[in-house]
């Protein structure tokens, strides 16, 4: 089990990145069946990550710091941005439109990375600093 929230969540970011790269690679080679299967695996894992944050980590952080309208709200808004991109990619995936798929997946990739960077550089270190029950939170998120 990771020792800090930052390590635990950053490792999950990496896991999502790898699933994403596999899906994108398969689609770019025209292997839609494998690509869409892997895409679904990625989308599920991404949603799991968002849910962990929105339902467990962010409320804990907001309660501990009293900051309800700041960084966590911004991160929630970016989750919505990414969810809408994932939805669009699902649609063009069903239509098997490779150009649109790869254009949108590139956009999602960079949006996701910028979001991850803000979390890993700023938000997670802040949560590690302000939460005393980090281990318990990690265990709850891992269930």
């Amino acid at each position: 089990m990771s020792s800090t929230i930052n390590l635990f969540m950053a490792a999950h970011h990496k896991e999502c990145d790898e699933l994403f790269a596999q899906a994108e690679q398969a689609v770019s080679e025209g292997d839609w069946e494998d690509g869409l299967f892997r895409w679904q695996a990625f989308a599920d894992e991404l949603e799991k990550h968002f849910t962990r944050e929105e339902q467990i980590l962010f409320p804990e952080f907001e309660q501990a710091t009293g900051m309800t309208g700041g960084p966590t709200q911004m991160m929630r808004m970016e989750h919505e941005q990414m969810r809408s991109l994932v939805n669009e990619i699902n649609k063009v995936g069903t239509a098997r439109d490779m150009d649109q798929f790869l254009g949108l997946s590139e956009s999602l990739m960079v949006t996701m990375q910028q979001h991850n960077m803000k979390e890993e550089q700023i938000l997670y270190p802040m949560t590690d600093q302000s939460l005393t029950n980090a281990q318990e939170i990690i265990e709850r998120m891992n269930q």
Binding site: Q81, E88, G103, L104, E106, V110, T111
Partner: peptide, 27 residues
Amino acid sequence: SFLIFLHLQKLSLKRPEAMTLVPNMKQ
């Protein structure tokens, strides 16, 4: 390409009808 996508996507967040008007990075 990312900067343009980022700014436009941010603008479209409050305008759901505009989501499809945001060009993706490869566009």
